[in-house]
């Protein structure tokens, strides 16, 4: 690993923090994982900066998270971006809270090919709308499924009857 544990969280990615200081809400370094909470408006720009300037060339993971019952001062749906830099071997996690009402954020499909399915999954399971996504449809659940299964308000023991068993011919 290129970084040392003695550094404070803000020192780990100084270029990023400096450039986006107005949009960085919090920086956490928990058990060696750097996690930065950011506002959603400039997110594509941040990801582009991380990718093109700081060499974070891999989108390892992108997923939704519902903080509705989390407590500890957090609430609402968030999207978490897990980036990895092959050349510098660094990792960073960006967390974006999308507010209480309709969760919506701009897609990053134009920056990472990997984002396509990951964003579809977050849409399917959390109802996050990724604007300008080329094909924002359900991916894991059936296309007739109602609601979003991983939201805390969706009961874990709730079953839905399939309206038709006919699969879609065009997928």
């Amino acid at each position: 690993m290129t970084e040392t544990v003695t550094k404070s969280p803000a020192e780990k990615l100084p270029e990023f923090i400096e450039r986006f200081k107005d949009d960085v809400v919090a920086i956490a370094d928990y058990r060696g994982d750097l996690c930065i909470d950011v506002r959603k408006d400039r997110l594509p720009e941040m990801i582009r900066f991380l990718k093109e300037t700081l060499q974070f060339n891999m989108l390892m993971d992108l997923f939704g998270m519902d903080y509705a019952k989390y407590g500890n001062g957090l609430s609402g749906v968030a999207v978490i971006y897990n980036l990895y830099s092959m050349p510098t071997r660094r990792r960073v996690r960006l967390r974006v809270f999308l507010g209480e009402e309709r969760p919506e954020i701009r897609s990053i499909c134009d920056l990472f090919a990997a984002a396509n399915w990951f964003e579809r999954e977050a849409f399917d399971l959390f109802g996050v709308t990724f604007t300008s996504h080329p094909n924002l449809t359900r991916i894991l659940c059936h296309h007739d499924f109602e609601g979003h299964a991983l939201l805390k308000e969706y009961p874990a023991d709730h079953y839905q009857r399939l309206k038709s068993a006919i699969p879609s011919t065009e997928i």
């Binding site: 059936h142 991983l150 969706y154 874990a156 879609s168």
Partner: peptide, 18 residues
Amino acid sequence: MKLEIGYLHRCFEKMSET
């Protein structure tokens, strides 16, 4: 080519929460 996945979706992540 188009792919359709999800036939083996068993809600692993949802089940873990309970």
